[in-house]
Every structure is written in structure tokens, then in C-alpha cells.
Design a protein around this nucleic acid. Structure first.
Length: 277
DNA sequence: CGATCTACCTGATGGC
DNA sequence: TGCCATCAGGTAGATC
């Protein structure tokens, strides 16, 4: 569920709460959440180490340790990172728990178990996580790099939505924000990459940065299922500013036309049939 | 190589 | 009320 704005919101919460903390215990009761390394390796490489910072690339979160290793977390569809005092009951589907300073627990909760947690050195990272190694342009890390964005899309014949959600081209957009971005840029989801003018690419680039900034400002989007919450368990507010996502049949905020919904590659796409061309 | 499908899971929701 | 189908924000791996 979480896309770039939600992951970035959690990163900023972590920056405030866990940097400088020592990991005093590691538990991993989940069956498939710890991947790429064994649970034993995770425990050995984290225990006694201090968290020195926070990083994000695309939808990946990383916590560097004083050993040089990185704790890598991907929330996928239903993962949550939550901070709590140890005497607060753990939610169902708590798969990994890091105890910090013997005083707090950083909990990875994930009903659908698509998410993952692992540890890697900087050298191992690309080998261990090809998905992380092949990430494309990150709109938050390099917001002004139009060439990196345009270069990634240049010559692609696929439909715009497929390009925007391809993490190897643009890192961090998913189903919600790709629809919001396409609407802001007044482009249909099925325009092909190689048919976009430079002016349209400029519009897209600006829209991506602007929408993601606004969504982070609002602490991300939480839908009715409340699957995305921040580190403190609080929902975001950007869903109130959505222009198309989950607004089928309601008037476009720009031209009043009813927002359309269609099934595209097994997933919903929302768009305005009038002002997206 | 690029484009497209499916599998991986649990839980919420809506129709009958 | 219960049963069943459908849907949910992501990605890796298989297949064409």
C-alpha cells in the first residue's frame, strides 16, 4: 500500500525516534518476513548495534548501523512500522520486533506478509536486493533532474501508467500517485511514452514532484482500510486532496466531468475522460 | 531485450 | 446470519 510519500513519512518519524538508539533485542516470529538472510544472521548483526541514521530510496527504507550494515525494510502492500512501549500488546501479524534501549519496540506488522526485512552491508546490497539496485530516478532525492526522468521514459512504447509505476524508471510511484500525477499533468494513462512531447514530459516531471511534496506534507494517503499508518499508528490526510483516486463517478475538480474507473492489468485506474488527453 | 501475466497472503466488503 | 466472490496501495519470476 505505501508509496513514496508514506515511506518518506515513516522515515522522517524514524529519524526523530530511533537514530542513536541501540538495538538491545531482536525477535522474528514471522515465517516469511525475514528474507535473503536467516533470522539468526539478522539477530547477530543487529544485536548491540546502534542505529546511526535513516535512508529511503523509492519505497525501500534503510537504517544504517554503526557496524556499517544496513537494516533494509520494504512494506509492500500491508506492512507497517510502529513504535510502542513494550507493555503495549503487540498487534496481530507482528513479524519482527527490534527492542531499542530496552525501552521501546520497533515493530514490523504485516497481515499479507508480502513485506520484508533484511540486513546487508553496503557491498552486499546490490547483490542481495536487485530490486533496490535497479531503482530509477527518485523524485525526492533528485527533484530537479529532468534529464534523469525524461531519459528513463525516452523511446518507451509502453503506456504511461506502466512507465510511471515501473520502479526501474521512476522510483516510488504506485497505483494511487501514478493516477494523481497523470491527472495533474492532464495526460491519459494510456498515452505511450514515445508519443509524449517535451512540453508534456516537463508537465509530468513538475507534477510528480509537486504531488509527492504535497502528499508528504499531508503525511501520506490512508484509505478506508486504514492499512497505511505512520510510526505512531496515525493515518495520513492526503486522501482528502485526491483528484481522481477512488473518486469514480464524482465530478472532476477541474472540469466537473464524472471521474471514470477502469480495470487495467488487474488493477483499478481512475482518470478524467475530459481533461486528460 | 521488453511487455504481460501470475503468484505470494489476509482481511474487509458487498451481493445473494 | 452466512457464504462466496471480489478487491486492496507491490514486486519477483515465469512466459511469450
Amino acid at each position: 500500500m505505501p508509496e513514496l510519500p508514506e515511506v518518506e513519512t515513516v522515515r522522517r518519524d524514524l529519524q526523530r525516534e530511533v537514530v542513536g538508539c541501540a538495538v538491545t533485542a531482536v525477535e522474528a516470529p514471522g515465517r516469511r518476513t525475514v528474507r535473503r538472510v536467516t533470522k539468526e544472521q539478522l539477530g547477530e548483526r543487529l544485536s548491540g548495534r546502534t542505529i546511526t541514521g535513516t535512508r529511503r530510496r523509492g519505497k525501500y527504507l534503510m537504517l544504517p548501523l554503526d557496524s556499517g550494515d544496513l537494516v533494509v525494510v520494504h512494506l509492500r502492500m500491508s506492512g507497517q512500522l510502529l513504535i510502542a512501549e513494550p507493555d503495549v500488546p503487540r498487534p496481530k501479524h507482528t513479524h519482527v520486533v527490534l527492542t531499542l534501549e530496552d525501552r521501546w519496540e520497533l515493530r514490523f506488522v504485516d497481515p499479507r506478509t508480502f513485506g520484508e526485512v533484511f540486513v546487508a552491508s553496503a557491498d552486499e546490497l546490490d547483490q542481495l536486493a536487485p530490486g533496490l539496485a535497479s531503482l530509477g530516478w527518485d523524485p525526492l532525492l533528485e527533484p530537479d533532474d529532468f534529464e534523469a526522468f525524461a531519459g528513463a521514459l525516452r523511446g518507451r512504447r509502453g503506456p504511461l501508467k506502466a512507465l510511471l509505476t515501473d520502479q526501474r524508471l521512476v522510483a516510488g510511484l504506485g497505483n494511487i500517485y501514478s493516477d494523481e500525477v497523470a491527472h495533474a499533468a492532464r495526460l491519459r494513462h494510456d498515452r505511450t511514452g514515445d508519443g509524449l512531447s517535451v512540453q508534456e514530459l516537463r508537465r509530468l516531471h513538475r507534477s510528480i514532484v509537486r504531488i509527492l511534496d504535497a502528499a508528504i506534507e499531508a503525511r501520506g494517503s490512508s484509505l478506508a482500510d486504514r492499512q497505511y499508518v505512520d510510526l505512531y499508528g496515525q493515518i495520513g490526510a492526503y486522501q482528502r486532496q485526491h483528484r481522481v483516486y477512488a473518486r469514480e463517478g464524482r465530478p472532476c475538480r477541474r472540469c466537473r466531468t464524472a471521474i471514470a474507473r477502469l480495470k487495467w492489468r488487474g488493477r483499478s485506474t481512475f482518470f478524467c475522460p475530459t481533461c486528460q488527453v
